[in-house]
Design a protein around this nucleic acid. Structure first.
Lengths: 265, 265
DNA sequence: CGGGTGTTTGAATGGCGTCAAAGATTGTGG
DNA sequence: CCACAATCTTTGACGCCATTCAAACACCCG
């Protein structure tokens, strides 16, 4: 882990943008997010970001790269509980919510910034930053909803369904933070990570991905996922379509030039 | 569903007792729980307690019988997300927490009481009922932790492990509300319910139970589960032993006479 | 007594895991 | 820049765990 002293203005814009899809931020709230200087940390792939015994880390925003919450069983099995990507928050374990006590590990090179300053300012003047607080609360609810959806995935779906629904979920989350170019997004997850998340063996994950490729649902090379047959995938996935957004037209949704680069960092 | 006007004093004691294992209640708080008159409702097995579209129900305490939170996939598959038993709370969906928006169905005959009165009094005088509020919050955290443990179960355990860890969890929960007599507790779940919860087919659940019986781990007849080999089950289950309590000696833990009867109602 | 629901059991199929080993890719240091 | 190691991906063969189909068997309730 290394520490940098940069301001990371750009990354707070990511959070602001994400919040604005759910709520309206007042000028003061936007200012709070964008004017604080934030301490950035980087982790290399595989390193531990938060350890359960030491709930020290203050509220943190993922800026680039992906991470996972995990739990290791006594026999050494590893189960990933959720996938975290830029724009996702990691809270202090001090609030004692079980999900915040899970270990977080970087699954790619990862950059995070500490948003304790903004959170503290929020706590000092609750009324002024009401909708900001509300927005941050929503981000937790979204993660909780993803967890419920994951229980359904693990409990009642076949390997093919699990992979299809996961790919759709990841696509949509990348889409909502502007990390989708055309129908392609960067997925920095090894097949081992995928298998630990969806509860399958590595080898079977590989087979399923091969099938999704050969049957024309996706293209996949070097961590880039391209959705070729959106509705076909959705048919397979068998998840509630209520919150499913259609795949964007290829020429819409031009991501900022640097978005892909950030994700690849 | 039927409505009764009884006071259900006895049932609030159940909640008070459960809270007291985690926090200390002040006299005022105990009084708040025990003196309010509460409206009791009963549901027959299979009926819906809370529907997701209609988050109408005010905070509710399960008094007797079991229920489950469930989600139905578009293709009609049913996945149970959690098991609820006496002493568990069902919150208003109005707070918009995803878990509270799940449908709740009774899986046995069920009696609940509305605790909106106590909750309202709590909201009006937060300081006075601080630790009560804290205690109720803990109950949600416990359910969240159970959900995480369930993800591990579904994602990384075999059928045998799933059943073993589930039986241990249910035993401990029954134990913590005084519904265990000796090493036996009432489990009003059909094998279909079990299968919908642990993500297996009904038939395989049956086979696994047969195996657990024939190999001397449990005894099982007409909804009564007796733990015969606690450490053997724990070995199989492969769950974090941190919060595992040992099985009580046979002559300790005499449950109140009516506890078993209540559960069977 | 009959129907419905839940449980139990068998046989056969198939999905998924395990073992083993060969490519492909990435990253590192010379 | 290349070579090498390490990691990740891919593929085949085999076997087991779990599902499905089918059909008795118990139990409860009207």
């Amino acid at each position: 882990m290394s520490i940098a002293s940069t301001g990371s203005l750009y990354s707070m814009e990511l959070l602001a943008k994400r919040l604005c899809t759910h709520i309206d931020l007042s000028p003061a709230e936007r200012e709070l997010l964008l004017t604080r200087s934030h301490c950035a940390r980087t982790y290399s792939s595989g390193s531990t970001v938060v350890m359960p015994e030491q709930p020290s880390l203050r509220p943190t925003l993922i800026v680039s790269g992906w991470a996972c919450r995990e739990r290791i069983t006594p026999s050494g099995n590893r189960q990933l509980l959720s996938v975290l990507m830029p724009g996702d928050l990691i809270w202090d374990g001090g609030e004692e919510r079980p999900i915040d006590l899970l270990e977080v590990v970087a699954v790619s090179n990862l950059t995070v910034i500490n948003i304790a300053g903004a959170v503290r300012a929020m706590a000092e003047d609750p009324n002024r930053f009401r909708s900001l607080r509300h927005g941050l609360g929503m981000l937790r609810l979204i993660e909780e909803e993803q967890l419920l959806e994951h229980v359904v995935r693990l409990g009642s779906q076949s390997a093919l369904q699990r992979m299809a629904s996961l790919i759709l979920e990841l696509f949509e989350r990348c889409h909502s933070i502007g990390f989708v170019t055309g129908k392609t997004f960067v997925m920095p997850l090894t097949q081992e990570c995928l298998s630990n998340f969806v509860g399958l063996s590595i080898i079977h994950v590989n087979r399923i991905l091969r099938r999704l490729k050969s049957e024309g649902f996706i293209r996949l090379r070097s961590g880039l996922v391209e959705i070729l047959d959106w509705s076909g995938l959705a048919d397979i996935a068998d998840v509630s379509v209520a919150d499913r957004i259609p795949v964007p037209a290829a020429d819409q949704q031009r991501a900022p030039i640097s978005a892909l680069e950030m994700a690849m960092a």
